[in-house]
Amino acid sequence: MSNQGNRTLTPTANSLADAIGHSEHRGMLARLTNHQTFWVFMAAVLACLALSLLTDTFATERNLFNVSRNFAFVAIIALGMTAVIASGGIDLSVGSAVVLSSMTVAVLMSAGMPFWIGIPAALAVAILLGAVNGVLVAYAGMPPFVVTLGMLSVGRSLAMVLSNNKMIYQFGPDHELLLALGGGSTMGLPNPLLVMVVLAAITGFLFKWTRWGQHLFAMGGNESAAKLTGIPVRQLKVSVYVFSALTAGITGVLEVGWLGGVTTNLGQGMELAVIAAAVIGGANLAGGVGTAFGAVVGALLIEVIRNSLILLGISTFWQGAFVGSFIVIAVAFDRFRSVRQQG
């Protein structure tokens, strides 16, 4: 209690800010190593180094090009998933949003529509899907798990109806443009990777610097508190699911160009990799915690591991086991840490 007396003698804003400043500086390194993201990043870097040494196929230009593109797709959606998870929800329907958006653009363009109609339409469909999720969660008060699980099934089914379950690989007059968008590269970097970097920067900005981000994390931390302070939690929830579906929609459009064709099994099971990426990147399934950078780093680690399985000649049947275990390990890690903090 004695230092309380000291404090009251110098209550000016400056000295207070100084005092705060000092207490906050625990050293860059200490702060860095305290973050899960840092360790995940180190793990990904180490895995890359190991693979470069162990195989002569990893560090080839072609493989790196492929890895970075696959990684970009997972990372883009992981950004949206991180928003949902940080807000206290979950979105299992992202894989279906991917296939529905790519099917929309494919069907429209193969029917002769131009690029600039097909893509906005595909994104609009994704947004609509997210809005339905959001409204059911926010206004009907249904658990996100149930709503988005239902949407997972509905979305893919709609994509089948839309395409009559056929593969589409002719995209009308703007065929080349669409293929170049997702499959091409700019300044030697694959386009999806560039899109991912831009979206990660935007998401990071939204999380850290806007009221939307602040409210999203507040809602994930304590929803009733957010409500009591007058934050419009319902609209906010809808916006979060729309954001997630939009990232999936963008991915869908890019994937069409990369693959050169769409089938209705595109994006199947993708929600698992995406949730794993977000969680490994530090998003807390209990809500209130997560970063854009973490989502990207989580996606990187997953893709590198997946690629290493292939390059090391391990059967691809093992991939599901790895991704699934990763989610569980990341959550267990988090549990362990919070228990230790309380104890």
Binding site: Q214, H215, F217, A218, G220, G221, N222, S224, A225, A226, L228, T229, G230, I231, G288, V289
Partner: peptide
């Protein structure tokens, strides 16, 4: 009820 554990003190004071 009205405090978010995951945010800073200042963020909580200004929440909303």
């Amino acid at each position: 009820l009205a405090i978010c554990d995951n945010l800073s003190a200042a963020a909580n004071v200004f929440l909303g």
